[in-house]
Amino acid sequence: MKELKNMQTISQVAKLTGISPRTLQYYDASGLLKPSGYTATGYRLYDTEALEKLQQILFFKELGFKLKEIQEFISQPDFDKIAAYKKQKELLLLKRNRINRLIQLLDRLEKGEQCMSFKEFDLSDYIQALENFKKSNSDLIIKYWGNVENFDRFVRKIKDDESEVAKLAIKYYGSIEKYTEAMTYNLEHFSEIMEKQFSGDTKKILRKSDDLYAKLTSDLSKDSSSDEIQQIVQEMDHFMHENAVDVSLDKPYWNVIINAYSSDYVKAITDSKYGAGASDYIVSAFKYYAENHSDGHS
Rank of each mutant, 00 (worst) to 15 (best):
Q76F: 10
N147M: 07
C115A: 10
N100Q: 15
E162T: 10
A14E: 01
L91R: 07
N259M: 11
D78S: 12
N100I: 11
L206P: 00
E164D: 15
L249N: 06
E228M: 08
N255A: 04
A244H: 11
K61M: 09
N97V: 04
D210R: 13
E235F: 06
P21L: 06
T180D: 01
I232R: 02
S294K: 13
V247W: 11
I282C: 01
D122T: 01
Y289D: 01
M1K: 14
A14G: 15
I141K: 04
K5R: 12
R156E: 15
K135H: 06
Q71Y: 02
M183G: 03
C115S: 10
V13H: 02
D47E: 09
L32C: 14
E192C: 02
I258D: 06
S225F: 02
K68S: 10
D227K: 08
Q76S: 13
S226V: 08
V247S: 03
K134D: 03
A129D: 09
I82D: 05
E62R: 07
Y281R: 05
S272M: 06
G200D: 09
E195G: 04
L140G: 03
Q71D: 14
W145E: 10
H238G: 07
L206H: 11
Y289E: 00
Q114G: 06
I103M: 12
S209P: 05
L168M: 13
A290C: 06
K171W: 10
A169L: 07
D122A: 00
K61F: 04
Q231G: 11
H297T: 10
G296H: 02
L16A: 14
Y46G: 06
A182F: 06
D210H: 12
M7K: 06
K68R: 09
K178Y: 04
I269V: 14
Y289Q: 04
N6C: 07
E3D: 14
A214M: 08
L33I: 03
S36I: 00
N292T: 07
I127A: 08
T202G: 13
T17C: 06
S75E: 14
F239E: 04
A29I: 03
D125P: 01
S294I: 10
N6P: 02
K111I: 10
I232D: 03
T180P: 00
D161F: 11
N97G: 10
T217G: 03
D250S: 06
Y26V: 08
D78Q: 12
D210I: 09
A14S: 15
E62H: 10
L32R: 02
Q55A: 10
D211Q: 14
K178D: 13
R101C: 03
S218V: 14
F65Q: 05
Q230D: 09
K134V: 05
